[in-house]
Amino acid sequence: MSTRIAVVTGASTGIGEASALALAEAGFEVYAVARRAERLEALAQRHPDIHPYPLDVTDENAVQRFAETVREAGGADTLVNIAGGARGTEWVAEAKTEDWEWMYRVNVLGTMIVTRAFLPQLRAAEGTVLNLTSTAGLVGYEGGSGYNAAKFAERGMTRALRLEEAEHNVRVIEVLPGMVHTEEFSLMRMGGDKEAAEKVYAGVEKPLTAEDVADVVRYAVTVPHHVSLDEIVLRPVAQAAQHKVVRKG
Rank of each mutant, 00 (worst) to 15 (best):
R162V: 01
E198F: 07
D77V: 08
T158A: 12
E165Y: 02
V33E: 07
I15W: 04
A220M: 05
M112R: 13
R65H: 13
A44H: 07
A149M: 15
A160Y: 03
G143N: 10
A125R: 10
P207E: 06
D230L: 09
E101Y: 06
T135V: 15
T78R: 00
M112F: 15
T128P: 06
E184M: 11
A160R: 03
H181K: 15
V33R: 03
T182A: 08
V7I: 13
I173K: 01
D56Y: 02
A26H: 03
A37T: 12
N61H: 14
A202Y: 05
G203K: 04
E184A: 12
R116V: 07
H225P: 03
A37I: 04
V246P: 01
D56R: 05
A18E: 03
E68Y: 08
R65I: 11
T115W: 09
L130W: 02
A93L: 13
E195G: 07
L234I: 15
L79A: 03
F28S: 06
V245T: 14
L187R: 08
E94G: 11
H51Q: 15
T58W: 07
P224E: 06
H168L: 12
G191R: 01
A22F: 00
E205K: 14
V213K: 02
I82C: 07
E183C: 07
Y53F: 15
S12D: 00
V33N: 06
F28K: 04
D99G: 09
A166K: 14
L161I: 02
D77R: 05
I15H: 03
A42C: 01
G110T: 05
P48M: 08
L109V: 14
S2A: 14
T133V: 09
A196S: 13
E205M: 09
R159C: 01
M112V: 15
R65G: 11
W102S: 05
E17L: 10
S2P: 15
A86M: 12
V204Q: 06
G10D: 01
V223S: 04
I50D: 07
V33C: 10
P48K: 13
T182S: 12
Y104E: 11
L109M: 12
D193F: 14
Y104S: 10
S145C: 12
F28Q: 06
A160T: 13
T222M: 00
G191I: 09
A93W: 10
G14C: 12
H181G: 01
G74T: 08
A93V: 15
G191Q: 03
A44L: 10
I173M: 02
P54N: 04
F185V: 11
V92Y: 10
Y31G: 06
E72K: 13
Y53P: 08
L43I: 09
A238G: 09
E205H: 12
V63S: 09
A11Q: 08
A20W: 00
T209M: 01
A83H: 02
A197K: 09
V8K: 01
E126Y: 05
E126F: 02
Q45A: 15
I50H: 04
T97N: 10
V180E: 08
N131P: 04
I50G: 07
V80M: 04
S228N: 15
E68L: 14
E98S: 13
D77W: 10
N81L: 13
